[in-house]
Write a protein that binds this DNA or RNA. Structure first.
Lengths: 335, 335
DNA sequence: TTGTATCGTGTAATGGTTTACACGATAATA
DNA sequence: TATTATCGTGTAAACCATTACACGATACAA
């Protein structure tokens, strides 16, 4: 059942059927009724592939996620989807598992017009690749800053700086960092924030305290183990993910140490994991929903006007204090 | 840059270019080389929309998830993706938020040939709708049983029965159920397993102990609170999700009760949440990765042969005992 | 030599929709 | 009445790739 069949049954032309379907007002009431009747009767649904081919628009946006293990993405996604659907776009998702090959495979959807734009988190590809793509189709980055393409993110350096400073305020001198292990820009920024905070407070950076740690409970657990075996174990651990923080805390508990008393722990993202854990976890909260919305608005801008300038939207983070750190008043916490 | 441009530059026809691209062996080495040269030079990428229109195949599969909050889906998805990619399919995901309207919007992708098949978890639509769809395009269900379409799942009644029986073995007489709140088939099955286990052991089912509880930490927390306020609070809580179990445990801790001693708690799914929590959580483990793989094989079967029979694959679950229940030997645990 | 098979290549139809343009009819204006 | 504008409708091209079919050339057998 295609538009031609409908046209024949409604005794009119495909053009008119198309007009009716797309709510073009320049159709007589009589014919419109007839067409709608036939559509109803036959259950005709326009073939969107044909439509996309003709219009060079798909009405779909692609979100590339490195993983869906981290519930942080769920909030962001809700922001994206919500705004997208208001604007008439469907949101589809693909998971890259941080593999550049997989990422490229899905980006083909964009370069072949199967989706109208892409929101990427940490791209697995090189900066050049990203820049290159951005010339072929609208791309924006979310949650990580970029100089190549428009992005919506928090100030990771500052967020990390403040969290570290808060740990210093609590009296910690030996602060470990479970840093992101993928070498992405936002990870480096967070490491830098940590370093600056130490240096600004007259402390040396101890390489032994900086450990790459994957997004997983077990890796947080193991990394914490490693740290606690050091001759001078840290008295605080700043992690890149709430889940790593949970793993670290679990290890502390196993070792008979009390999180928030013997060792302070801070997570990152502000997912439900940080609120749920026992003890609950101090965390650097990202405004996921708002970031998603912002990223989407940047993307739409780029879709509507491909030559628009590269823009960066920086949103405020928030240090949420919980049981996993000794409670003293926090440093100021917004951008 | 389309296939015609390439043909002109390579001084041949579109048909031949198409053959080269699709690795048809019936092309002279000479022309093949020339075409590949031009392709390389121009960076030509076949327009997949055009291709899909012509071939009526997209090479894409759609996975409909109710949410990505539950990390259980991550494992399943890995199973799906892994097998799909081996078979040359891309996997795209859409989130329905359990909203039938959203679900329908994405199912249009399938009925308009933008994807070749759909894997759904708990469909938000009615059984009739699902049956209806299954006549229009290949659909399989994953993680929940169905009589309408092929499915891969565990025996939920049995899994729930065994978990409940285990709680009984531990000496519990007052066992609460935080049941899934959406009224889906798998939720009913789990409730039935719970009921049967009680009845088979000579206990009455107490409606006050059966509480609908959403997939969320806070809902588990609140439901547990409600239960503990009962004149005769339960001594064990069986929940539908690991996250709800975590919420319930957190509440118990707040009340000064010791999970696994004062009150036993069992979760469902076997996600990292159950392993990570402190205390860690006894859970009914689903073989997520395998379920995903199985669902995919069913889907491919349906794609290759739309008239193939409706099939059901039942995989074995496993009761994993952890700190949140008193440790006694478990009941047998496999299908 | 004639006929047949094989091989590489090109022509043109096809998939389903949108839309610029043209056409005829009607209404409004001069 | 003649002219113009307006409106609804249809025709046909366009989007891009695939593929059935046909064609010509070559090789081989009869």
């Amino acid at each position: 059942m295609n538009i031609r069949d409908v046209a024949v049954l409604a005794e009119t032309s495909t053009a008119t059927v198309s007009r009716v379907i797309n709510e073009d007002p320049h159709v007589s009431e009589e014919i419109r009724k007839k067409v709608l009747e036939v559509v109803e009767l036959t259950g005709y649904k326009p073939n969107l592939v044909g439509k996309a081919l003709r219009t060079q628009k798909s009405g779909k946006l692609l979100v590339l996620l490195p993983t869906i293990q981290n519930p942080y993405y769920s909030r962001v996604l809700q922001g994206v989807e919500q705004s997208a659907s208001v604007q008439g776009y469907d949101t589809i998702i693909a998971i890259t598992h941080r593999d550049p090959e997989i990422e490229k495979r899905y980006l083909i959807l964009a370069s072949t017009k199967q989706v109208d734009g892409v929101i990427t988190f940490t791209s697995a590809c090189s900066d050049e690749d990203v820049l290159n793509y951005s010339h072929q189709f609208p791309v924006v980055q979310c949650g990580a800053s970029s100089t190549m393409v428009s992005c919506a993110c928090i100030d990771n350096v500052k967020a990390s700086y403040e969290a570290t400073e808060y740990l210093l305020h609590l009296g910690n001198k030996r602060i470990a960092l479970l840093k992101g292990p993928y070498g992405r820009a936002y990870e480096v920024e967070r490491e830098n924030g940590y370093r600056y905070a130490l240096l600004d407070n007259g402390l040396q950076v101890n390489q032994a305290y900086i450990v790459p740690c994957d997004y997983s409970y077990t890796d947080g657990f193991d990394c914490c183990d490693e740290l606690m075996k050091l001759p001078e174990p840290p008295t605080a651990i700043f992690t890149s993910y709430d889940l790593s923080a949970a793993g670290a805390i679990k290890k502390l508990l196993k070792l008979g140490l009390v999180p928030g008393k013997d060792v302070d722990v801070i997570g990152f993202d502000g997912t439900y994991i940080s609120a749920m854990y026992s003890p609950d976890i101090t965390t650097v909260e990202q405004p996921g929903y708002e970031l998603g919305k912002a990223a989407l608005s940047l993307l739409l801008e780029k879709i509507d006007n491909p030559d628009s300038m590269v823009k960066k939207i920086i949103m405020s983070h928030k240090l949420t204090i919980r049981e996993s750190t000794k409670s003293l008043p926090p440093a100021e916490s917004t951008v």
